[in-house]
């Protein structure tokens, strides 16, 4: 039971990170109807920028962890957002009304560019950081000596995720921008006729998605203590899987899918085999889609004849 509880905690933490990335996929899909293949690599860039900012701050002699974290968060979100904005401007906007596969290929190309860019600019080796936030709590110590641990980092990840999600939900449901986004999702032409600046709204969607990915990148850095140029690919595929599992286009679905993938992966590793954890996640995706072709919370596609 204790072992189970521990895995539950680990799974939820991992799932939070996936969920944050998945929201970026699902938002972009909802509004422009394309898979932003480069999104996983935006997450990787976010992690790198956080790492570099952190290094600089520490070398300047800053020691207050909350201050460092806040600055890292702001810098990483800002610069990563600009990446999201630039990519949309260069690679996707010229193809917005083009054939469906063209933006997708363009996105795959963008993903290759980002991976290779960070490989060339920051080197191929894995970058480790010392644990920034140490300590934690022992929740329960079983008779067998197995202790359920809840580390401070895990608390931070979950709390940060909840705060970011709350902000994000407010943004989408209560602000002018959120309303514009929802309008563009329904019908871009009509939204434009009613005075919504579609280009700007789409740009902002990419910006927000990238900012969320940056938060996920920081969480990843804090939690695992490493970044490398290739981490965006696997995380991106998992998060995309999460978005599809939850029902692509659905924001709560993305978070739910993220948590589901995180839990599946963790429990499979704990009880069956670590090697096949990804196989398990992908297989469950396929099985779910067989029975629910539009994911867990996706709107069923009504066939118009």
């Amino acid at each position: 039971m204790d072992y189970f509880a521990q895995q539950l905690i680990n799974g939820l933490v991992l799932g939070s990170i996936y969920g944050l990335i998945a929201i970026g996929y699902t938002m972009v899909y909802g509004i422009v109807g394309m898979i932003n293949f480069a999104h996983g690599d935006i997450f990787m860039i976010g992690g790198f920028i956080a790492l570099i900012t952190f290094l600089i701050l520490v070398s300047f002699g800053l020691t207050a962890i909350p201050v460092i974290l806040l600055i890292v968060l702001l810098v990483s979100m800002a610069i990563t957002s600009l990446y999201g904005w630039t990519i949309e401007r260069i690679a996707y906007r010229p193809l917005r009304h083009s054939f469906r596969l063209a933006p997708m290929l363009s996105a795959i190309g963008m993903s290759f560019i980002l991976v290779n860019f960070s490989q060339v600019s920051q080197g191929a080796r894995v970058k480790p950081v010392p644990p920034i936030i140490a300590g934690g709590y022992t929740l329960h110590e079983g008779a067998s000596g197995f202790a359920v641990q809840l580390s401070n980092v895990q608390i931070l990840v979950v709390v940060a995720t909840i705060v970011v999600l709350a902000l994000f939900t407010w943004l989408v449901s209560r602000t002018r921008l959120g309303r514009d986004m929802r309008a563009c999702e329904q019908d871009q032409t009509m939204a434009a006729l009613l005075g919504v600046d579609v280009d700007r709204t789409i740009s902002m969607t990419f910006v927000i998605g990238a900012a969320l990915a940056a938060v996920a990148g920081i969480m990843y850095l804090l939690y695992y203590g490493v970044v490398d140029f290739f981490m965006g690919f696997v995380a991106g595929i998992k998060a995309f899987t999460a978005a599809v599992l939850g029902g692509i286009g659905s924001l709560p679905g993305a978070m739910l899918g993220g948590l589901a993938i995180g839990l599946i992966e963790t429990f499979w590793s704990a009880y069956f085999s670590v090697e096949y954890k990804d196989v398990a996640a992908f297989s469950i995706l396929i099985v779910v889609l067989i029975f629910m072709p539009t994911g867990l919370l996706g709107r069923p596609e009504v066939e118009k004849v």
């Binding site: 260069i90 690679a91 010229p94 193809l95 083009s98 054939f99 063209a102 933006p103 290929l105 363009s106 795959i108 190309g109 963008m110 993903s111 290759f112 560019i113 980002l114 991976v115 290779n116 860019f117 490989q119 060339v120």
Partner: peptide
């Protein structure tokens, strides 16, 4: 070799914008 994927990625983006079909 180092820049191969970079160039490949750029080529993909440019070609798609140039000839989406």
């Amino acid at each position: 070799d180092q820049y191969r994927m970079l160039v490949f990625g750029m080529a993909m983006v440019i070609l798609m914008i140039w000839r989406p079909r």
